[in-house]
Amino acid sequence: MASKHPISVTINGKNFEHEVEPRLLLADYIRHDVELTGTHVGCEHGVCGACTILMDGKAVRSCIMLAVQADGHEITTVEGLAESEEKLHPIQQAFWEAHGLQCGFCTPGILMTLVPYLQENKTPSEQDVREAISGNLCRCTGYQHIVDATLLAAKTMQAAK
């Protein structure tokens, strides 16, 4: 068996230290070792986007990264978005209000894709949003409500400034 490697990772502001086998995928590490199951695993080959997380503020696929590669990095998962149990992140709030989800499987990945996107693109058009989420598959909604929710989020985040 391959030797284990010690890693130290900051996830949602908290530090975690584990010994991991090199072949452990980052998505599985987050779900099984850190027990944050908000990050979902769909296709396991980088196509569906359900496992999208932020590493050092950038959206990446956690199913095509190794846990050992996250050593020394800062990770944000969907659990790190809301300020508290009562106060959702504005993007989460908009998804609630505009019915941006049905089964919710793809939602964490879409939210984590949109967080850095809306930081960089404050007033996106509908076409821009469709392109921004083109790497995230949803099998329920036909995307219309997801696009509506994203546009609503952009608006409320602008108004809050």
Binding site: M1, A2, S3, H5, E21, P22, R23, L25, D28, E44, L66, V68, Q69
Partner: peptide
């Protein structure tokens, strides 16, 4: 699926 075991170096 998951990767088969391997040795890992990160120079």
């Amino acid at each position: 699926m998951k990767p088969a075991p391997f040795e890992y170096h990160a120079p």
